[in-house]
Simulated scan of single mutants.
Amino acid sequence: MQLQEIGIIRNAYKSLTDIPRQGRLGDAVSEIVIHPAFADGLLRIEQHQHLIVLYWAHLAKRDLLKTLPPAARELHGVFASRSPGRPNPLSLCIAELIERDGSILRVKHLDALDGSAVIDIKPYTEMDRI
C-alpha cells in the first residue's frame, strides 16, 4: 500500500493540546496547501460548502488498541472510538470551506495539527447525511 501526500495543513495548532476535541468545536482558520502537482484536482472545489479532509495524524500514538472516550466510563477499542491514537493514524474531518486562493484552501473546523500531511479531499454533500 502506498499513500501520497497531496498537501499540508497550516494553522495555529502547534501542539496536541491546542487542537479542539472535535473540529466543529473550534473556529480557527486553517490553510490546506495543495502541492503544485495536485492543484488541478481543485477544479470547481469552491462549489462545495463543506469538505471531507483525510489527513495523517503524524504525532498520534500508534500502539493503542484501547482508549477511554471522553463521555465513556469504560474502555473501548480504538476501532469503536474516534481516538486519533490507532495503528494507522488516518484522520477524517468535515471542514467548512471559506475560500480558495489558487492551491490554498482556507477552512474552519479542521482538527488537524499544523504540518499534518493531507492524504485526500472529497466534497461533503447531502448524500453523505444520514
Rank of each mutant, 00 (worst) to 15 (best):
M1L: 07
M1A: 09
Q4L: 09
I6A: 05
G7D: 07
I8T: 14
N11T: 02
A12N: 12
Y13R: 06
Y13A: 04
S15L: 05
S15Y: 02
T17K: 12
T17C: 07
D18W: 10
D18S: 14
I19C: 07
I19K: 08
Q22M: 11
Q22D: 12
Q22P: 03
G23L: 01
G26V: 04
A28T: 11
V29H: 07
E31V: 01
I34A: 06
I34P: 00
P36I: 08
A37G: 02
A37I: 07
F38S: 06
L42W: 04
L42I: 05
R44Y: 14
E46S: 13
E46M: 09
Q47D: 15
Q47E: 13
Q47S: 11
Q49C: 00
Q49V: 00
Q49M: 01
Y55L: 02
W56G: 04
A57S: 09
L59H: 11
L59R: 14
K61L: 14
K61Y: 10
D63R: 14
D63F: 14
K66Y: 07
K66N: 05
T67F: 00
L68K: 07
P69S: 05
A72L: 00
A72V: 00
R73N: 12
R73V: 02
H76V: 00
H76Y: 03
F79G: 04
A80Q: 13
R82L: 12
S83W: 09
G85Q: 13
R86M: 09
P87N: 12
P87M: 11
P87S: 11
N88E: 15
I94L: 02
L97C: 00
E99C: 14
R100S: 09
D101P: 00
D101Q: 11
G102A: 10
S103N: 15
S103E: 11
S103Q: 15
I104C: 09
L105W: 11
R106C: 09
R106G: 13
H109D: 03
H109G: 02
L110K: 06
D111K: 08
A112V: 10
L113I: 14
D114I: 01
G115L: 12
A117Y: 00
V118T: 06
V118H: 01
I119S: 06
I119G: 05
I119N: 03
D120C: 04
Y124T: 01
D128H: 15
R129V: 15
R129Y: 10
I130N: 12
I130D: 12
